[in-house]
Amino acid sequence: MLHGERPARIVLCTQDDALALRLTAMLGRWAAAHCVETAIQQSGSLPAQGPELLFIDADTIPGGGPRRPDALAGTGLVVVSRRSRQAISAYRWHAAAFLAPDASRQELGRAMDQCFSAWRCGLQWLDLPARRERVRLPLCQVAYAEAAGRESILRLTNGGSVQVSVPIKKLEEDLPGPPFFRCQKAFIVHLSGVGSFAGGRLNMAVDGRSISVSRQQASLLRQALKEWREEETLCTSR
């Protein structure tokens, strides 16, 4: 029930190992949160064959030619530079986005949004029966799932919902954890969608839904949230 076309190949074209390490960590975190399958590698020079997405460090890699090489014609391009003049020069390649080396997680997310067509092949999709039809939607759009008898209701990040003909226990098998966590018998939540958790209740950021959590699950959920948020902080500080 979980489908993806193929991993999105991402090449970090830089001779700065510290920058490559930071971007790799941030992209790995972004991919986990958005349920995107990726294959990330570093290269000290422009690749002979274009990946789906190329981050080019304009401060260490010459990239200011009048047009991008033919081998990269179908590649999504993100220019990374701390110097505006270098970035402007590299933009002759018709880059999709610009990123500073010390960019925040939110800034990386915006850059990736601008490159959606490049990495969409790695997006994981749910393909589920819904009464007499089937529902296909990106996994990243699911904020949480709620049991509804022998069916489940998917609450979406845009505030909508979809009811599918799959019991929540079966649905749990298809949802990667993390970022998903079964906080109680009737609910599975995306850890990034948890607004707050205290006193045995969690509140979902998307709609303010309050969900009770058993004492046993509360301990596991607290640990899962701690690790998820610590990794988030670590990625942006590297």
Rank of each mutant, 00 (worst) to 15 (best):
R85H: 14
L77F: 02
S81H: 06
F98Q: 03
W93T: 02
L128A: 08
S84D: 09
L77Y: 00
A100R: 12
L72K: 03
L108C: 11
D70Q: 09
R85F: 14
A71V: 08
T75Q: 08
Y91E: 15
P101C: 03
L126E: 10
F116T: 05
G109M: 09
W119I: 06
S81R: 03
L137W: 08
Q106M: 13
D113Q: 15
G109Y: 04
D113E: 15
P101Q: 01
G74A: 09
L126H: 12
C115R: 05
L137E: 02
S117N: 13
A100T: 08
A96C: 06
A111Y: 01
Q86C: 01
A100C: 11
R120T: 13
C115S: 09
R92S: 11
A96K: 02
R120C: 10
A118I: 07
P101H: 04
E107M: 10
G76W: 01
R131N: 13
G122Q: 01
R110N: 14
W93A: 04
D127S: 11
P69K: 01
R110H: 13
R83Q: 09
G122H: 01
S84A: 09
E133N: 02
E107V: 05
A130N: 12
G109V: 05
Q124M: 15
L72Q: 06
I88W: 03
R132Y: 13
W119H: 07
R85C: 12
A95Y: 01
E107D: 13
G122F: 02
Q114R: 04
V135C: 09
D127P: 04
Q106A: 14
E133T: 00
A130H: 05
P129N: 08
A118Q: 07
Y91C: 11
L128K: 04
A90S: 15
Q106R: 14
Q86T: 03
R83T: 07
I88V: 08
D70K: 07
S89F: 03
G74V: 10
A100S: 11
R136H: 01
H94Q: 04
P129H: 06
P129R: 06
M112F: 11
F98N: 01
C121T: 15
L137D: 04
D102N: 12
S104N: 12
F116D: 01
R131P: 07
L108E: 05
T75A: 11
A90C: 14
I88M: 10
G109K: 05
R136K: 04
V135K: 09
L99M: 13
Q106C: 10
W119T: 07
F98W: 11
R132S: 14
D113A: 15
V78M: 04
R110K: 13
L128M: 13
V79C: 03
A100N: 08
W93F: 09
D70N: 08
Q114K: 02
Y91F: 15
D102G: 10
D127C: 12
L99Y: 14
V135M: 12
P69R: 00
A130G: 14
R136T: 03
R120G: 06
R82Y: 13
S89H: 07
L137M: 13
Q124C: 15
M112K: 03
Q86G: 00
V80Y: 00
S104H: 09
